Deep mutational scan, measured.
Amino acid sequence: SSRTRFTDYQLRVLQDFFDTNAYPKDDEIEQLSTVLNLPTRVIVVWFQNARQKARK
């Protein structure tokens, strides 16, 4: 499976959201998916990875 290449804009939006809320609800994931034009699955994985990094 090929890795998703995020744009600077997508990363900024995801990071800004994460800084406020590391555990987005389903409807928030749907909204991010629509706004960023990314599959919900990709967003879910991004947040999982971001939470892992934040824990270190």
Rank of each mutant, 00 (worst) to 15 (best):
Val35Gly: 13
Tyr23Met: 13
Asp26Leu: 05
Arg12Tyr: 01
Thr20Trp: 08
Arg5Lys: 15
Asp16Asn: 11
Asp27Arg: 11
Arg55Pro: 09
Ser33Lys: 01
Leu14Pro: 00
Val35Trp: 06
Val35Glu: 08
Ile43Trp: 00
Ser1Arg: 05
Lys53Ser: 10
Asp8Val: 05
Gln52Ala: 03
Asp19Ile: 06
Ala50Gly: 08
Gln48Ile: 05
Gln15Phe: 07
Gln31Pro: 04
Thr34Asn: 07
Ser33Pro: 01
Phe47Trp: 03
Ile29Pro: 00
Arg5Ser: 13
Lys53Thr: 13
Arg51Leu: 05
Val45Asp: 15
Ala50His: 03
Lys56Phe: 12
Pro24Gly: 01
Val35Asn: 03
Trp46Gly: 02
Asp27Cys: 11
Lys56Asn: 05
Asp19Arg: 08
Arg3Met: 15
Gln48Asn: 08
Gln10His: 09
Phe47Thr: 00
Ile43Lys: 00
Gln31Thr: 05
Thr4Glu: 04
Arg5Gly: 09
Ala50Arg: 08
Phe6Asn: 03
Asp16Trp: 01
Glu30Met: 15
Ala22Ser: 14
Glu28Thr: 10
Arg12Ile: 02
Leu36Tyr: 01
Asn21Lys: 06
Asp27Ala: 03
Arg12Lys: 09
Val44Ser: 12
Phe6Ala: 02
Val45Leu: 12
Arg12Leu: 04
Gln52Lys: 10
Lys56Gly: 11
Lys56Trp: 04
Gln52Asn: 07
Leu38Arg: 03
Phe17Cys: 06
Thr4Gly: 04
Leu32Thr: 00
Leu32Arg: 01
Thr7Cys: 02
Thr4Lys: 02
Leu14Ser: 01
Arg5Pro: 12
Lys53Pro: 10
Asp8Pro: 14
Thr7Pro: 03
Arg3Asn: 15
Thr20Ser: 11
Asp8Phe: 04
Asp8Leu: 06
Phe17Tyr: 07
Asn49Gly: 12
Phe6Pro: 01
Phe18Leu: 10
Gln10Trp: 01
Asn49Ser: 12
Gln15Lys: 11
Gln10Lys: 02
Asn37Gly: 08
Ala54Asn: 14
Leu36Ile: 08
Glu28Trp: 02
Asn49Ile: 08
Leu11Pro: 00
Glu30Arg: 13
Arg12Cys: 01
Asp19Gln: 10
Phe17Thr: 09
Phe6His: 04
Asp26Ala: 12
Asp8Gly: 06
Ala50Met: 07
Asp8Tyr: 02
Asp19His: 07
Ile29Trp: 04
Gln48Ala: 12
Tyr23Ile: 06
Ser33Asp: 00
Arg12Gln: 12
Thr4Pro: 09
Trp46Pro: 02
Thr40Val: 09
Arg55Glu: 08
Thr40Ile: 15
Ile43Thr: 13
Arg55Ile: 15
Arg3Thr: 15
Lys56Ile: 06
Lys53His: 14
Phe6Thr: 05
Phe47Leu: 11
Glu28Gly: 06
Asn21Ser: 06
Val44Leu: 13
Gln31Ile: 04
Ala54Gln: 12
Val44Met: 08
Val45Met: 06
